[in-house]
Design a protein around this nucleic acid. Structure first.
Lengths: 234, 234
DNA sequence: AAGACAAACCTGTCTAGACCTGTCTACCAT
DNA sequence: ATGGTAGACAGGTCTAGACAGGTTTGTCTT
């Protein structure tokens, strides 16, 4: 077999496996085949397979444990504790696009956690690419720090606020998450999402704290109930 | 065998048992099943079971005596599990009454798990005592066994199906749970609950399996979204 | 009724082997 | 120098046993 010039074998392996993960063939939490099985499947050496898996691990798509194997960690938007909810797409294959509504510095504007002064606010919508209809509306608030100035101008690392914070060495120590039914979508949110007001929606609120109990991040999400659900294994 | 997270089998066993201890299913001083029984239940080797028990012992949750068995030594407050989600009453203290709609032997009548033949069915409503309005509607299905005959005539142990099963030495090895928004309460369920049809509701589905992957229990619940939510700490 | 004994449990400990990832080295090709 | 191959080795995880010794219980004997 001829090797396409631009892509090494390990990159190809990573690409094929990533496609299987993102397409849902390999679902969240599922075990990948063992390295030796992948050696068989791709007819390459184990070194090459491991390089490919390394690429996926660096992207955060899989995690591997000695003596056990590699596991898909994509889509578990929550924690890696293995014992939490993960948000799941109930509706098989919906292609999601993302649009950032704003990244701004402003006083706390959400009701729930005690007012905390200036915040870094990130509002984001995810929408169905075919129709443009908004499927999720997420409002994240993080206590302002001066080194967030760069975020305002340069945006987020990989579109993810948690990744942006992690890149600054910030990660939460504890947290809570609530899920409930929002019986009627408010008109303002409906307009932003391109939906009808009054629809029932799935609502998630997530509050994380740093080691000293201070607010780390607060996220409020409204999700299309036809597409999103929560899933847990135990 | 499919493993659900990047977690070793012994860790999973420890986690499941810890949840049972902390949730009060296994109370202080109670004996755990013997190691060989746990081998059966989780379908793993005794070495692995012992590793799991070792984790619990290291946490001080159990103590084991030669020739006798392992015992729960967790005396502390039996608050909620800490791992996984717990159903929480959003609406402070609503006094709940319980009404069993039926306990019956019948062929599988719910859509979700593959049809399994005869089932023990328990349908139950929880309602607000002040108003009589139904807050939850739960349908539980368990594959029929002949020794359930007594359940049909004598009812459940303490009103709980899981407790009834546990009393017969039956407990699940693994399970999954889904939560989503039921956009419109069907008319039939609405009549049972004394609610208006078409209301949005919170819907939970829970499927547990025995160690060999066979169906253990399936429960479908519909919950008042004003009163119930999901909560998780991590 | 009291004691001895055996069977059936239980945990503690050990082994051999299968299969897994992590790491290393030596070598080849472009 | 880079990317791939092939193999060896260490160590983690799990299985399937065997064996020793503690505990309980029922039964048989005295």
């Amino acid at each position: 077999m001829k090797q396409s010039a631009a892509e090494s074998k390990s990159q190809r392996i990573a690409r094929v496996l990533e496609a299987e993960i993102r397409s849902g063939t390999l679902t969240d939490g599922a075990a990948l085949s063992s390295e030796n099985a992948l050696v068989e499947r791709f007819a390459v050496s184990r070194t090459t397979v491991r390089k490919g898996l390394g690429i996926l691990a660096a992207k955060g798509l899989i995690r591997t444990k000695v003596g056990i194997g590699s596991f898909v960690t994509y889509g578990g938007a929550v924690i890696d504790s293995g014992s939490g909810w993960s948000l799941s797409l109930a509706d098989g294959r919906a292609r999601l696009g993302t649009r950032i509504l704003r990244i701004a510095r402003l006083p706390m504007d959400l009701d729930d956690p005690a007012p905390q002064g200036e915040m870094l606010a990130v509002d984001r919508i995810r929408f169905r690419e075919e129709t443009g209809q908004g499927l999720t509306l997420e409002r994240a608030r993080v206590p302002w720090r001066d080194d967030y100035e760069a975020v305002l101008s340069e945006g987020l690392n990989g579109g993810s606020l948690s990744r942006t914070l992690a890149a600054r060495g910030l990660s939460p120590a504890t947290g809570e998450e609530w899920a409930n039914v929002l019986c009627a979508l408010p008109a303002g949110d409906a307009a932003l999402m391109g939906r009808r007001a009054g629809e029932p929606m799935l609502r998630l609120r997530r509050l994380t704290r740093d080691g000293h109990g201070g607010l780390f991040e607060y996220v409020e999400s409204v999700l299309d109930p036809e597409v999103f659900g929560l899933h847990m294994e135990f």
